[in-house]
Amino acid sequence: MSETTPADRLPIELRTEALEQLLTERGLVDPSVMDKFIQTYETSVGPMNGAKVIAKAWTDPDYRERLLADGTAAIAELGFKGPQGEHIVVVENTPQRHNVIVCTLCSCYPWPVLGLPPSWYKDPAYRARVVREPRVVLAEMGLELPADTEIVVRDSSSEVRWLVLPEQPAGTEDLSEQELAGLVTRDAMVGVAKVKAP
């Protein structure tokens, strides 16, 4: 193994372990706090939260109105708040208008309702291209929109976070709120997919 050439990059796993050790032995980081952060985002903060918000909006017209008027407050009614959720704006997708969310500068994403962003959202191709040719990008992701649907791309460049209220699929009017929540996907709440009927 060559020791000092620039090509000799340390494996990132090893670098991570080294940093954790350095900070832990000086009491600057508590590994049990790290475990808690990891577990929180692996198990309790994710798109299942957003799905509950959307299902409630589909079944409760008053809630829908509150959600579109003040997303942060309506989302907090269901107990969802925290980092990356200081101010959440909810926009409705309709057959006439389709919103799609991106962060071209980094990876801003509404954590309390969607959790941590998926790899495609953080990928340079999505960040670079969806603000320039959204219709092509959405088609590559499997969403073909009718030519007369207006596309609105939302580039999250401040601490405002966006959540898409997708269209409720036809034929699901009789489903319960809980059943509807099971249909709502992360991708639909970012605007790169539609919710499908079961």
Partner: peptide
């Protein structure tokens, strides 16, 4: 990165 070119296809979710 907004609008920059040469990244290829987006990742499929």
């Amino acid at each position: 990165l907004g609008g920059t070119e040469g990244w290829g296809r987006v990742k499929t979710p």
